[in-house]
Design a protein around this nucleic acid. Structure first.
Length: 582
DNA sequence: TCAGAGTGCGCC
DNA sequence: AAACGGCGCACGCTGA
């Protein structure tokens, strides 16, 4: 049983300066902040809590301490002690905005818990983590209370608990991480945390007027597409003597109604998703019209209206939330808005712009997943291809079509791309047909897909063997997977084979990208360039025009070093572009 | 009426 | 024997 923590409330400079010196000697510092709200750009800290072992928790009424008297506090937060926090990104952002940026090493109890439980559905709230690891039920009733002095006893007790409990969680999580051989991965996450926190604060500059022009165009196209769809539907039903009014009663956004309508037109369909519709688009104009409408509807509803709502009134920029462990694979997820799903269409991406005197620097890993497969499988043909700097998609095209590389057409290459990406994750012939059509506009018969599949694994026999190794683990009933960097994904029940084939690749991609980010933190801080977005294998900076060369160099070096650590001897290629827009 | 599963699709 | 993976969001629909 853990006793309620003692605490000292500091609401005066003199108390602060007598209370802080012993804390300066501590190797660990547990930190928590109570704020006026959740937005570090507009809200502020009302109370900050600092806990060190064998000492009452220090509760600082921050607004009561003038900026000019925070030197000692600043020194404490900036020292080399290990800073422990739950969801440290939040506290880092608020403290940074208060000119109290924490420094040194970090231990985020939330990230630690998420690293340990990657793949398992579980809440990583402080309340749940504490319940699971310490069997203590934290009272969170004060969390949303009005943090305004004079603080109530209940508020102060709650605040003290939140910081004190971190000191209890830390050794338990540390031990678990080490036992599970996950400490290194956790440290990678901890190193990434300030980078992510700063990236969110930076945000992306967005050209609203250009976006609205684009939106209006898309809206008009959508209307046209809908009219076209209705006309074709009517025409299709004319011979069947259905009532014209029926067309107007059908909701084009309802898969159920659309399916019924298409079936009534005599089209043999089981579902109205892309994969079923695309093969019929040539034959039935109404289906092409539906696909066109769907596409435009998707873009307009999810982006045209929503993106402008995320422009921050204070900065004029878009500041999404990135979740370091938002994906089971170890990848980031991104929300509010999801900048990782902005269409590749330049018309859309050009609306993300650089500030005056700046440029957008985008750097992405070239074919990183295939290179990872080459590394993990050790496939000799892939390794050789990459060592020679040849184009692996062309090579695959040559191998599966039997043509010499010089005669490989663009169409062949597109087909090979589908084959490469599909087959490495265990795709079957049937899905390969669909996938090739949808993703690359390549039509192939089932027999052709079967043949390609066979030739692919014959040509890349190392990949086939690598699949076999994973398949054996799968058959043994293994319920976890590790990346080369040691990241673990667990499954609560039986995984699917494809998930087990995918995780070592997608997960290592995440490891590499995170290592690159961590490496970027210090060198980037010494420039005026800012990290503004991350899209899985792409790093986007906003950089002063005068520093493009210097920053490109830094970016390149960090990304190469991060990837080489795991990919060597497979070479790493980074594509870097500078432009006025994304 | 409303939460939540399901469908569909944008990105990597 | 066969089996691509990872997200977030908007929508219509279901069921309590």
């Amino acid at each position: 049983m853990i006793h309620p923590p003692e605490y000292t409330l500091v609401s005066h400079v003199s108390t602060l300066n007598s209370v802080l010196p012993p804390l300066l000697k501590s190797e660990v510092l547990a930190i928590d902040c109570e704020t006026t709200g959740l937005d570090p750009l507009t809200d502020s800290i009302k109370l900050m809590q600092i806990a060190v072992p064998n000492h009452p928790v220090v509760l600082i009424d921050l607004p009561a301490i003038p900026q000019s008297h925070r030197a000692l506090l600043k020194k404490l937060l900036g020292n080399s002690a290990l800073k422990i926090a739950h969801n440290a990104k939040f506290d880092w952002q608020f403290l940074t905005q208060a000119r109290l940026q924490p420094n040194g090493r970090f231990f985020d109890t939330q990230l630690a818990y998420q690293v340990l439980n990657a793949g398992i559905k579980t809440s990583a709230s402080l309340q749940n983590v504490t319940a699971q690891l310490l069997h203590i039920q934290l009272d969170k009733t004060q969390q949303m209370s009005d943090w305004h002095p004079p603080f109530t006893q209940a508020q102060l007790r709650y605040a003290a608990w939140d910081a004190a409990i971190l000191l209890q969680l830390y050794p338990i999580l540390l031990k678990k991480l080490k036992q599970a051989k996950l400490f290194k991965i956790a440290q990678l996450e901890f190193r990434c945390m300030p980078v992510v926190a700063q990236m969110e604060l930076n945000g992306m500059l967005f050209d609203l007027s250009q976006w609205q022009i684009l939106g209006a165009k898309l809206e008009a196209k959508k209307t046209t597409a809908l009219q076209q769809l209705k006309q074709l539907h009517l025409a299709g039903n004319a011979q069947m003597s259905l009532l014209p009014e029926l067309t107007d009663t059908i909701n084009p956004n309802s898969p159920q109604q659309v399916l019924a309508a298409l079936q009534a037109m005599g089209i043999d369909l089981k579902s109205t998703n892309q994969k079923d519709l695309i093969p019929l688009a040539q034959e039935y104009p109404v289906i092409q019209a539906l696909l066109d409408y769907r596409h435009l509807s998707k873009i307009t509803t999810t982006l045209t209206d929503s993106l402008p709502q995320h422009i921050h009134p204070k900065t004029g920029r878009i500041h999404p939330n990135y979740y370091q462990l938002g994906a089971r694979s170890g990848r980031f997820s991104c929300r509010h808005p999801p900048l990782q799903t902005i269409p590749r269409d330049p018309a859309a991406r050009n609306c993300f712009i650089a500030a005056p005197g700046h440029q957008i620097l985008t750097a992405d890993y070239s074919q990183i997943e295939l290179r990872i497969v080459a590394r993990l499988s050790g496939d000799s043909r892939m390794r050789q291809a990459y060592r020679q700097g040849s184009d692996l998609h062309r090579l695959t095209a040559a191998l599966v079509t039997g043509k010499p590389i010089s005669q490989v057409t663009q169409e062949d290459r597109r087909l090979a791309k589908a084959v490469n990406f599909g087959l490495i994750y265990g795709m079957g012939a049937a899905k390969l047909c669909i996938y090739a059509e949808i993703k690359y506009g390549v039509t192939m018969t089932l027999a052709a897909a079967k043949a390609f599949r066979k030739r692919f694994f014959h040509a890349y026999s190392g990949v086939a063997e690598w699949h076999e190794t994973i398949k054996r683990a799968y058959i043994r009933g293994t319920k976890e997977s590790r990346t080369l960097a040691g990241r673990r994904r667990k499954w609560a029940s039986q995984p699917r084979l494809a998930e087990m084939l995918n995780h070592p690749v997608q997960g290592l991609n995440a490891d590499i990208n995170k290592l690159a980010m961590a490496k970027l933190f210090q060198p980037l801080a010494e420039t005026n360039a800012k990290l503004i977005c991350i899209v899985h294998d792409e790093i986007i900076l906003e950089c002063p025009e005068t520093m493009i060369d210097q920053v490109s160099h830094i970016l390149h070096n960090c990304m190469v070093a991060a990837a080489q650590k795991f990919l060597s001897p497979i070479p790493v290629v980074i594509d870097i572009k500078a432009s006025n827009t994304w």
